[in-house]
Amino acid sequence: MASPITTIGFDADDTLWHHEAYYKLTEARFAEILAPHADPGTVSERLIAAERRNLAFYGYGVKGFVLSMIETAIEVTGGAATSATISAILEAGREMLTHPIEPTPHAAEALRTLGRTHRLLLITKGDLFDQERKLAQSGLGDFFDAVEIVSEKTAETYARLFARHGDGAERAAMVGNSLKSDVLPALAAGAFGIHVPAEHAWALDHADEPAEAAGRFRRIADLGALPAVVETL
């Protein structure tokens, strides 16, 4: 029987190219900047708390992360953060916005293979300018039939986008490294969800594998396994 899947959505950061590793490096640099005021564990806890508070205001991406670092620096130093400290944080943020884009293993090959038989969508969240920059530098943009940069990934988001660009969520699959934002809401929309775990994970992105909808959930080690898995759906 032919596969019912006609449309495949892909997450971008840490699915098609490396991303979280740069946040980890910047967080370590941030801890060094604040070393005279607090130990790395305290800095990390304060930063995660600031990110959690600020998601509703700043959304996802480097700019919101930088603002959360500045807020954390002010808190940790009791309001005594110097202009030099703020400048160092801003410089770290600028470096994050210019880091080279390195595709994940087998990304281009998987897109090339699946693009012959399926509609391919890029569905990502974050800062518009930064996501467009990364897509352009990745060299993967031409594989996609459509690109959607959204503020949040919900079941409603996936239902709307798979209806707009495909044959509905029930004939679509979503591929990504995040169970929380890529897989679970896609399953809730009625699509298949394919999890590709990344080496580094964001603390606020944790979720458990689905107990329900198991028949529509798959987990693969890397994108090299994706074409064969899609054939089984």
Rank of each mutant, 00 (worst) to 15 (best):
M1D: 14
I5E: 10
I8V: 15
G9Q: 07
F10K: 08
D11N: 14
A21Q: 13
Y23L: 12
Y23V: 07
E27M: 13
E27I: 00
R29L: 15
A31W: 11
L34Y: 07
L34M: 08
A35E: 15
H37C: 09
H37D: 11
T42M: 05
V43N: 06
V43E: 08
E45H: 08
E45Q: 08
G59V: 02
M69P: 00
E71H: 00
E75S: 07
V76L: 10
T77F: 08
A81P: 03
A81F: 04
S83Q: 14
I86N: 05
I86G: 06
S87F: 15
A88T: 12
I89T: 04
A92Q: 11
E95G: 10
H99C: 12
H99I: 09
E102Y: 09
H106R: 05
E109N: 03
R112Y: 01
L114R: 07
R116Y: 00
L121Y: 03
T124G: 08
G126M: 01
D127L: 04
D130Q: 11
D130L: 05
Q131T: 04
E132Y: 08
R133H: 12
Q137S: 03
G139M: 09
L140V: 09
D142N: 14
D145I: 12
A146S: 12
E148V: 05
I149S: 11
E152R: 04
E152Y: 02
K153M: 10
E156D: 13
Y158N: 03
Y158S: 07
A159K: 11
R164T: 04
D167P: 06
G168P: 04
G168R: 02
A169R: 00
A169L: 05
A172L: 12
V175F: 05
V175N: 07
S181I: 04
D182C: 07
L184D: 01
A188K: 03
A189F: 00
I194P: 01
H195Y: 09
A198S: 13
A198C: 12
D205Q: 02
D205Y: 02
H206S: 06
A207E: 00
A207F: 01
P210Y: 13
G215Q: 11
R218V: 13
R218W: 11
A225E: 14
P227N: 10
E231Q: 15
T232D: 09
T232S: 15
